[in-house]
C-alpha cells in the first residue's frame, strides 16, 4: 500500500467518516485520526480474532467488517486488511451505505503484499 498515513488520510476524507485508525494485527498503532483515548487498539485485535474464530466454527469464508452499533449512531467499524486492521468511527448523521461502499472500494484496492507498512 502507499504509506499508511496516506491511506488513513484518504479514508478520513470519505463523507461520513468521523475518524479512523490503522493498527497492525499485533496491536501496534500505525496511524490514526481518532483520539488516543477514544478507541483501544486492543478492541480491533481481539474482535478480529473472535470474528475469525466464528468464521472457522460456522464455515464462513471472508469477514468484510465488524460493526459495533451504538445508541448515539456513531457506529464503529473494523475492516481486516491482511495483516492490518482498520477501525472507523462513523459520523452520526450520514449515508451509511455510501460511506461503507467507498470505504470497501478503497480497502479492496489496498494490498500490503506482506510488505512492512511505512508510517
Amino acid at each position: 500500500m502507499a504509506t499508511a498515513k496516506d491511506f488513513v488520510e484518504r479514508i478520513n476524507r470519505i463523507a461520513g467518516v468521523a475518524g479512523c485508525l490503522l493498527v497492525r494485527n499485533d496491536g501496534q498503532v500505525i496511524s490514526q485520526t481518532v483520539d488516543d483515548n477514544e478507541v483501544d487498539s486492543a478492541l480491533l485485535q481481539i474482535s478480529s480474532g473472535l470474528a475469525r474464530d466464528i468464521m472457522t466454527n460456522v464455515g464462513f469464508s471472508h469477514c468484510h467488517y465488524i460493526s459495533f452499533n451504538r445508541v448515539n449512531n456513531q457506529t464503529f467499524y473494523i475492516f481486516p486488511i491482511e495483516k492490518y486492521l482498520l477501525g472507523i468511527t462513523q459520523q452520526a448523521d450520514c449515508s451509511v451505505a455510501d460511506m461503507l461502499d467507498q470505504v470497501s472500494r478503497l480497502v479492496g484496492k489496498v494490498s500490503t503484499n506482506g510488505a512492512k507498512t511505512v508510517a
Binding site: 478492541l43 481481539i46 466464528i54 471472508h62 468484510h64 465488524i66 459495533f68 452499533n69
Partner: peptide, 21 residues
C-alpha cells in the same frame, strides 16, 4: 466475549454485526 470487549469501549453499545461473504 465480543460484546464484552465492545462494551468496554462503548457504553451505549446496542448490536454487533459481523459481515461475512
Amino acid at each position: 466475549k465480543l460484546y464484552s470487549v465492545g462494551r468496554m469501549n462503548f457504553d451505549d453499545l446496542t448490536d454487533i454485526t459481523l459481515n461475512y461473504d
